[in-house]
């Protein structure tokens, strides 16, 4: 019904085909390379986790997929179309079919939960109010927050805010949804709820999910395929089981959360004796 309102020409894709193809992606911020020759495939219908330490550009990658940033080199193609080369109207048409869950939810703070979820429906469809109401309540029911529909965002806990944002992200029945650090700062119960929701929604709605996270245990428990990125490159990729058996010391340090290893505990510095003696002299 919503799909009819948005675009009749969109055909459902075949599960298992590549939905997002990233080739030779480089992105520079100033002179600093955030990505340097990254290749990735996001498969339709699956949950693909992109993992890596903080500051490795995971969120930047989502913004490149959504066309909010343009690559310095290489391509990000969604359904075969190079996102950076899409015209304004084409890009916005594509975004109607992509949902994104931001790290803090990014709910509109001046309107209540109901209106937040109804926002994309009101913007992109001409559905009558009664139908929008039913759809919003169904989306909120899916994330377990139908009863909270009249609350303001300031009255929600962090976990609830993300669930509302998730309901808003799926309001237009997108083909793909991108999650930016959905588990960060969650208590164990909220974390469990979100992990289950992500998996359930992906399977029930036949979504394609891109999950950016550094929460190893939770991400590996639901991901079908994992990319680990560091210093602008893909350092390992494969199924969660393949990754757990990786021989790479770096990957093992990341997965096990070891404080020392290829990523040293100490920030590079001069010899401590030299530093202390210098301090003494001055």
């Amino acid at each position: 019904m919503i799909a009819e309102q948005l675009d009749n020409s969109v055909k459902p894709g075949v599960e298992g085909e590549t939905l997002v193809k990233i080739r030779g992606l480089s992105y520079y911020r100033g002179s600093r390379a955030i990505f340097n020759g990254v290749d990735m495939d996001i498969v339709r219908g699956k949950i693909t986790a992109i993992m890596g330490p903080s500051g490795t550009g995971k969120t930047t990658l989502l913004r490149l997929m959504g066309g909010q940033l343009k690559p310095s080199q290489g391509t990000v193609a969604v359904e075969g179309a190079d996102v950076a080369k899409l015209k304004y109207t084409q890009l916005y048409a594509l975004r109607k079919r992509m949902g994104m869950l931001f790290q803090n939810g990014a709910l509109f703070t001046d309107i209540n939960v109901f209106d937040n979820v109804a926002f994309p429906l009101r913007e992109h469809t001409n559905l009558p109010d009664s139908m929008i109401r039913d759809l919003v309540l169904m989306k909120l029911e899916a994330v377990g927050l139908r009863g909270a529909n009249q609350l303001m965002p300031s009255e929600l806990s962090g976990g609830m805010a993300r669930r509302v944002a998730l309901a808003r992200a799926i309001a237009l029945d997108p083909m793909m949804i991108m999650y930016d650090e959905p588990f960060t700062g969650q208590d164990p119960i909220s974390m469990g709820v979100l992990v289950r929701l992500l998996k359930t929604l992906n399977d029930a709605l036949h979504l394609t999910s891109v999950l950016v996270s550094h929460d190893v245990k939770e991400s590996l428990s639901i991901a079908d395929y994992v990319y680990v990125i560091s210093e602008g490159k893909v350092v390992e990729h494969g199924t969660p089981d393949t990754l757990r058996q990786s021989q790479s010391e770096w990957v093992q340090q990341f997965l096990e959360g070891l404080s020392d290893g290829p990523v040293p505990f100490h920030f590079p510095a001069a010899d401590i004796e030299t530093d202390l003696l210098k301090e003494g002299r001055s």
């Binding site: 913004r63 959504g66 909010q68 916005y92 048409a93 975004r95 109607k96 992509m98 949902g99 994104m100 931001f102 790290q103 803090n104 990014a106 709910l107 509109f108 703070t109 926002f119 994309p120 913007e123 992109h124 944002a165 808003r168 237009l172």
Partner: peptide, 18 residues
């Protein structure tokens, strides 16, 4: 700062117009 404008863009709503 709270990414509401980015969220709007990703919902295919141009914040400059809305």
């Amino acid at each position: 700062a709270t990414e509401q404008l980015s969220a709007m863009e990703m919902m295919a709503v141009d914040p400059l117009h809305r």
